[in-house]
Design a protein around this nucleic acid. Structure first.
Lengths: 342, 342
DNA sequence: TTGTACGCGTTATCAT
DNA sequence: ATGATAACGCGTACAA
């Protein structure tokens, strides 16, 4: 049995499909009476619109694309979650948040971006953790699909960033205040080829950490820095191993690559009999749900996850409604949550 | 600037749009030569197909809908992640996994289900944690969109379930083996109105736990059972409070509602000075990433998350290809991971 | 207020 | 091997 269309409804009611369309979309110049008739019939025949057809006809999609690298990462899924929550709460785009994940593959990202663009598959594009290259961003600008970047920033796109310089600075100052001398850092890899995402957050956290340290007369030599690229648990373990292999005796590690990676550090330390925070103080980044429950509870720079999602959604709506004449760049100051690991 | 269409390419090459379409879709009766010309032009003009139009024309979507309650829950996002991973690995539906979340709202679920159905918006529907009502499932059957249920089971749909009876039984036996006498349980709420999702997993875990206990001569009174409905952290805290309020002195709690809830129990216990596992032994369910890192590390029934995602994807493909004559129901036996909390 | 006719970008049918 | 034409379901000028 084929699905009900507006024509079916029209036939049944002996009117034109145009009228049905108008009734369903609450068009002003349509009588209350026919609207009611149509809606009743639509309900009875369990009609629901064919989004593809609607999108085709309107060149619009009534949806927002939300793109990131993967869903399993707590940081990402939490932001997405609050983003959706906001949509639900404001009753806008309730069924229209379309999550896409790139699996960290440049080619997938490119393909997805093109697909969304040419198919007019979104009224707005939100990108978390990743960003488009200049060429494709220019195309989005040309067809007036607004782009909202989270944790990144570019000319031609709106953005929401947690102030990484400030956050990393707070970690540095805490280490110094608590008398740490030999300080290390684990941070996202900083790649330069512009074909790649240049990870702004990583760059900024590194900068912020280094300069805050320098303000107090401490240098951060490169050998005290380990890089990650997948931001996973195992990299934390490996990083700690590397630090030890290099023979430095660190007494503090700022894991700017995130709490997940910090978990790996904690775990490896436990395996090696290294005491946290006595031997090494550890500060993470993000404040994921599990951070409170680690052993020891993790001191960390909190990302205001819900806030980010909400602000991103509101920003997207503003942009879609054309209320933004120029790029809007929002910065949020993160907070250092002190627990037991440092 | 409007996006390139096949007509634009046709005009430029002086051929018909039909031929362009065939060339792009690698139609057999098209010359190598024109195929190459078309593809080159398509690339040059940075063409990419309008999915809405394609979907409209074909009544198909080349995508799989993945529906669950929300994204932020570790269990859900991990299954989704491995599901996608499998798609990527097998190079099928790489850009076509469409996640939907219902936010635990019955109305949203209904709307989404209808939308996907009438819009022919998916070649297959995967539902995690939730299930459709009989009426709408019947409609899916009628239009031959296969439905795959994870953690649920219905006639007319394929399913993948972790054997909850067995998993809960293992928890029960471990408690008994380790000499626990006063045993409690926290489990998902068991609601009957058929308009709701009747949570199969909750029902089965309860049944499995009770009967395994009974096999050893232990009754599980209702007062020793607390129910949750959102499966969140706070419910764990509240449940422990309730147990204490009721005045029973439990020495073991099986948190069948999941590790997240178990985290809440652990946390509240710590606040109250209750020692785990000395005073109360706690067993969780799921084995989320954080379980190893809790204080104490959580003993729990492991859900083979990656396995579920992979099997669900493969099942979906089989179903789409019409290889399944009847419902296929897969059961997986979970494993008890013993750590420190019990 | 309602209906006619056309277009959105693509695929499918039927000729040629 | 290629092309003209219709069809998919919907929205919308334009006309009535």
């Amino acid at each position: 049995m084929k699905p009900t269309t507006i024509k079916d409804i029209a036939k049944k009611l002996g009117i034109s499909h145009t009228t049905v369309s108008r009734a369903i979309n609450d068009h002003p110049s349509t009588s209350r009476k026919t609207k009611n008739r149509v809606r009743k019939a639509a309900e009875a025949m369990s009609y629901s619109p064919n989004m593809a057809a609607r999108g085709l006809a309107m060149g619009k999609s009534e949806s927002i694309a939300f793109m990131s690298t993967r869903f399993a990462a707590p940081f990402i899924s939490n932001v997405l979650d609050s983003f959706e929550q906001r949509a639900f709460y404001t009753k806008r785009y309730v069924h229209g948040i379309m999550p896409y994940s790139t699996r960290n593959e440049e080619s997938v990202k490119e393909a997805l971006l093109k697909q969304i663009l040419r198919g007019r598959n979104a009224d707005a594009l939100v990108m978390l953790t990743i960003k488009p290259n200049e060429r494709i961003l220019a195309e989005y600008n040309r067809v007036k699909i607004p782009v909202i970047l989270i944790e990144n920033s570019m000319k031609g796109a709106h953005s929401i960033m947690v102030d990484n310089v400030s956050g990393a600075g707070k970690a540095a100052e805490y280490f110094i205040k608590t008398g740490r001398k030999n300080i290390g850092m684990i941070v996202g890899e900083i790649v330069q080829p512009p074909s790649h995402d240049l990870n702004m957050s990583a760059v900024e956290r590194k900068k912020g950490f280094k300069s805050a340290l320098l303000d107090h007369g401490f240098e951060l030599p490169n050998r005290n820095i380990e890089e990650t690229h997948a931001y996973i648990y195992e990299e934390g373990k490996r990083s700690l191993d590397n630090f030890i292999k290099k023979g430095d005796r660190l007494d503090a590690i700022f894991c700017a690559a995130g709490d997940i990676v910090a978990m790996g550090v904690l775990e490896r330390a436990k395996e090696l009999g290294i005491k946290i925070p006595e031997d090494i103080a550890v500060i993470g980044y993000d404040d994921i749900l599990a951070a409170t429950h680690l052993d020891p509870p993790l001191t960390t720079v909190r990302q205001p996850l819900e806030g980010i999602g909400i602000m991103a959604f509101d920003l997207a709506i503003e942009a879609i409604e054309g209320k933004l004449k120029e790029d809007k760049h929002i910065k949020i100051d993160p907070e250092l949550i002190i627990r037991k690991s440092a």
